[in-house]
């Protein structure tokens, strides 16, 4: 309980702030609706209202604020509306046996998850291999490390369409692979940096001790450097999988994809349905939370088996 209390407090504070923000965000729509229903509002024409600040409108029409909490297409939906939409597109559809229909977030989440895991595996592999190469070769460190850093300064949104176009040019069918590449592009970096640090974490004395045994390099790597890097690896993996998910969603956004959470966000934007955007956003956040929690659990189990002090 003591672990959850701080988290719950912050969560409640965010929810309270969110609920409070709904009133000023939706006041214009609320007053437009009230006017159409014949209720007198001040000022009485939409043009003037659009130039008036939300707080002035709220103080002049206190009776109409409540309408902002039950709009069909609100600018900012309430937590309850988002929750209901999320349930409608996941649990409710699953109970009707349509979990994998094109309107279901389970389907879109599954598409995104596949690419995320694929990209995560690819990025982790590249990150670990890169770190090993960097730790064992000064030349590779000098030549590759700056490029690894520069790679992260290029906006992925700009790069994503190019990767999609390029991969279709060279005849790769479908979007799974290019999306995975985009997600691996974001995810390899934290793994690389963490693993370089982890593989270098053994002290001078520990390395000297292995020298006194005349230890072959492979044994030094397997018996000392690799196990020493495990705690660093898990920390990086947690950052990496979140980055991989962001990468996949970005890969689905500007590229005309029709499935995946990123595509849902884009479609919601194009069709003016903020509720769809918000529920897709929350689905992505929940997915990220689940993935990071799973990795955290795996970390706990692994470190415990390695005899780390509980």
């Amino acid at each position: 309980m003591t672990r959850f209390l701080p988290v719950l407090t912050v969560l409640l504070a965010i929810l309270a702030l969110w609920v409070l923000a709904v009133a000023p965000m939706n006041i214009w729509q609320a007053l437009d609706l009230a006017e159409r229903e014949g209720v007198a509002v001040t000022p009485d024409d939409a043009r003037t209202r659009s130039e008036t600040s939300a707080f002035v409108l709220m103080t002049r029409n206190p009776g109409e604020i409540g309408r902002g909490y039950s709009l069909d297409r609100p600018r900012l939906p309430t937590p309850v509306q988002v929750g209901r939409e999320l349930w409608k597109t996941t649990g409710a559809m699953a109970m009707k046996g349509r979990a994998f229909s094109k309107r279901s977030l389970i389907f879109h989440g599954w598409v995104t998850l596949q690419s995320t895991l694929f990209g995560f595996a690819l990025g982790t592999l590249v990150g670990i291999l890169g770190a090993v190469a960097i730790v064992y070769s000064r030349t590779i460190e000098m030549s590759v490390m700056p490029w690894a850093i520069i790679s992260q300064t290029v906006p992925i949104v700009a790069l994503a369409p190019m990767i999609i176009v390029l991969s279709s040019q060279i005849g790769i069918e479908g979007r799974a692979l290019p999306k995975a590449i985009i997600s691996a592009y974001l995810c390899f970096f934290p793994v690389l940096v963490g693993m370089v640090k982890g593989l270098r974490s053994p002290s001078r004395e520990q390395l000297d001790l292995l020298r006194t045994y005349n230890t072959p390099r492979l044994a030094e790597f397997l018996k000392l450097r690799l196990p020493a890097s495990v705690p660093y690896l898990f920390t990086s993996l947690k950052v990496g999988i979140a980055a991989a998910l962001v990468g996949t969603i970005v890969g689905e956004l500007p590229t005309g994809a029709i499935s995946g959470l990123g595509a849902r966000i884009l479609i919601g934007d194009q069709f003016g349905t903020p509720l769809a955007i918000w529920s897709a956003l929350f689905a992505a956040a929940i997915l990220a939370g689940v993935l990071v929690t799973l990795l955290g659990w795996l970390q706990g189990v692994t470190l415990k088996r390695m005899g780390v002090r509980p």
Binding site: E205, L209, T212, Y213, K223
Partner: peptide, 25 residues
């Protein structure tokens, strides 16, 4: 055999596992 000021035992190995280290190598 060399003994350093810090014991430098591997935290992920048991005491027996640590002593086995040079023998494995």
């Amino acid at each position: 055999g060399y003994v350093f000021q810090a014991a430098g035992l591997y935290p992920w190995r048991t005491i027996a596992g640590n002593i086995r280290l040079p023998l494995e190598i």
